[in-house]
Nucleic acid binder design. Structure first.
Lengths: 214, 214
DNA sequence: GCTCTGTCGACTGTCGACAGTTAACATCGC
DNA sequence: GCGATGTTAACTGTCGACAGTCGACAGAGC
């Protein structure tokens, strides 16, 4: 899927450590021991430190002077601030997608929506993967590399949030409707409506996440 | 101004190196030699490497495997992508500011505008400092820490862009009008108009920057 | 004369070890 | 018994040195 050809050990460590954090293998609130993790990864502390700093710049770790790194724990204020950022980015992406989409983009978006509905009807517990695929397809249609990059980072933080949730609720039917409405607005080349639908969609997701918070 | 109490050498190196890049002391396109710069800063390569990686995560340096770091050079496409991101963030900030501003925020924004006009009338060549102060005051009024943080990073990249410009044009009169219009919309608690004014303001700034590009 | 190849130099990537600081524990005094 | 203080251990921050890789230059072959 992704090109795992990170030649440097630091690059590999970034990938491995990111996965450890996102999967919840290192739960939020846990402190990271450099020597222990370095031995576990079979590398020295130097590359590991670089990896830790990199993940910290992505918001997946927080650094305390002389106390090392730890996985951040989030409260309601953090979630709200994060979703304000996500809303700003993805609403802009929706606008741009509605302005710039080609027919091929619309086809791809419709395909993801249909696959999501099939999976949901089939009773699949976790079509979150398809939710990400939808937002990714939308970003591709927006053709704005900087915005896409930032959205990726924010989505990562959301994934981290989900890993810390008590009960991860299954994908809501309302979200499927939101996605369909987004595709319709984008296909109609209506940036204003696309942005508006996205805003309401994310508000719903944010509220759902807040209810599931500790 | 800034709390210079970075205890670690890496933290200090980040500040110093950031300044070296932003002031154009290390011009765009220049490669950074680790041993040479480490000696110049009087530190070892370890902390310097961490500082370099940090600046790279902020977009102020680009890394090439086995070739080290260099200050990025920007073309028109980069500028456009950057301003699409900036527009997304600052329009959202303008909306939030219009919704959340207090009277004190409005007073501060008006004060910055008036100071800018005074400086402009006095023939000051470079009220860019006040432009930053205005956008900062707007971010304070928006009360969205994540968005504020991202805007700060984007503005940094814009500063880097300006350092690479042939002739850095002085602050335009139109921008002063834009700022006034923004304050008016924010004072009137009109998020839609605030966002619209901001969008046009940034479009103008972006166009101005593109004309000055190599 | 041009291209390909082999060698050299410089730089990055990585490692192990030392020093300084923080936090926890045990001890002493009240 | 409770609080303050000294001590100790663990961990981070930092350093210098070694190994691997990339680019440039020179020389041989066509």
């Amino acid at each position: 899927m992704t090109p795992p050809l990170h030649l440097s050990l630091a690059g590999q460590a970034v990938d491995v450590l990111r996965e450890l954090v996102l999967t919840g293998d290192i739960p939020p609130g846990t402190r990271v021991n450099e020597v222990e993790l370095a031995q576990r990864l079979g590398i020295s502390r130097g590359p590991l430190r670089e990896a830790i700093r990199h993940l910290a710049s992505e918001g997946l770790l927080v650094l305390a002077p002389h106390r090392g790194a730890s996985v951040p724990t989030s409260d309601a204020a953090d979630v709200q601030a994060l979703f304000e950022l996500r809303t700003a980015l993805e609403c802009a992406a929706a606008e741009l997608a509605a302005s710039r989409r080609t027919e091929a983009d619309v086809v791809r978006l419709r395909a993801v929506c249909e696959e999501s509905r099939r999976a949901y009807s089939a009773g699949e517990r976790f079509p979150y993967r398809l939710d990400l695929a939808f937002h990714q397809a939308l970003l591709d249609a927006a053709r704005s590399p900087r915005i896409a990059e930032q959205v990726r980072l924010v989505q990562q933080r959301v994934v981290l949030l989900r890993s810390g949730l008590r009960d991860d609720p299954p994908h809501q039917h309302a979200s499927l409707d939101d996605h369909d409405a987004l595709v319709t607005a984008i296909a109609a080349a209506d940036p204003t409506r696309a942005s508006d639908v996205m805003r309401k969609h994310l508000a719903r997701v944010c509220a759902q996440m807040l209810t599931g918070l500790a």
